[in-house]
Design a protein around this nucleic acid. Sequence first.
DNA 1: TCACAGAAGTAACTTATGATACAGATTTTC
DNA 2: GAAAATCTGTATCATAAGTTACTTCTGTGA
Lengths: 212, 212
Amino acid sequence: MIQDLKENYGHIFEQDLLNEINKVAIIKEIPEGTKLMEIGDYIKSMPLLVSGVIKVLREDDNGDELLLYFLENGDTCAMTLNCCMTHTKSEIRAIAETDSKLIMVPIQNMEEWMAKYSSWRNFVLQSYNNRMNELLETLDSIAFLNMDQRLLKYLGDKARVTKSMIIRSTHQEIAYELHTSRVVVSRLLKKLENMGKIVLNRNHIKILDLGL
Amino acid sequence: MIQDLKENYGHIFEQDLLNEINKVAIIKEIPEGTKLMEIGDYIKSMPLLVSGVIKVLREDDNGDELLLYFLENGDTCAMTLNCCMTHTKSEIRAIAETDSKLIMVPIQNMEEWMAKYSSWRNFVLQSYNNRMNELLETLDSIAFLNMDQRLLKYLGDKARVTKSMIIRSTHQEIAYELHTSRVVVSRLLKKLENMGKIVLNRNHIKILDLGL
DNA sequence: TCACAGAAGTAACTTATGATACAGATTTTC
DNA sequence: GAAAATCTGTATCATAAGTTACTTCTGTGA
């Protein structure tokens, strides 16, 4: 673990803190599709992402979903921070978008470190900052963009986090995450294909050029 | 100021911290409509709300607005925390919805207090938590609710924070904050009036019963 | 190889919202 | 008090998005 820690968090945390983390944390490797957190869960430990991508989702009373954002290497889940610090229930669902590796830190240590290490404080605050801004960006998309633009943005984001120009999703899956219907997604994707931005295939979409 | 502090933050902060705040902070009284923060601003001090209501808005590239949430007594602006801690620009606009009273804390002290006072740490984290959840709630509204339901929620929220069943807004103002058009607001308000939930007047709306 | 299930294409229709245009009412300003 | 500005009510039309229904395509597995 100390290896993963150094590589991904060495430039953020001082040696003492790295050592402490190394002592109390455990490594967790999870396959794609694993549910890390469910709405209503109480959280007992906080994940530091080492590799892979985690998607964070919101759900309404009818079970309709909405993708909030992706977590990448070096990120942590601010929602988890919330839950840990204030001992409240999770407001979101987190699912591994790809195979992922996490460092799990027990919440008892977090409060202690908040007092002891300024680098930990900065990390926590910076995480809140990042997640807040991503939430705002998502809000912007929904409030200000049309579905075709949201779809474009979605494809771009997904390509970025998975580092691949091939999006392995069905239209139905995309529809869930954008909170629309499969038919709408198919319709708009076809439009994008006709514009030469993507190529459609069964079970995957190839991105040619999302730029204007 | 020490009076305001004790009344509003006495149960949150220990005496030592209250004294420190009292030493470095200044009281600021602002009239309704004052712009406290603009998108792109750098922030030099952090406001603790003593009385009044602050509305927090988001704006897109075309100048279209969207209300994010209201801040009330005992609240602080998590976005400001962000800006202070990470020295980045504001992503939002804040405007006094009513006459308000603020305690302004210089940002230099904040980092120091983060290390020194656990009550301050908890306050900051709790603020992030609250704001994050309010952002999520706003997101839910936009993603999952129709405009008529959003309008109802808006009226309810506004009545709550202003503690009045009379909403002093024009249809145009409401339209800006919900990011829709005046005509749509007029149309839906008229529908609500016909349902017996509200009474419309020039420049103000009387709420009778928003419950189902 | 055939049946089946899941995925995608497409047409036709409904609905919520947005846009435009104008009229009537009320308030403000000179 | 007349003119101007602001606010609200409506009608009409345009459009994005959601719904339903059906077809076609593709891969899997018996």
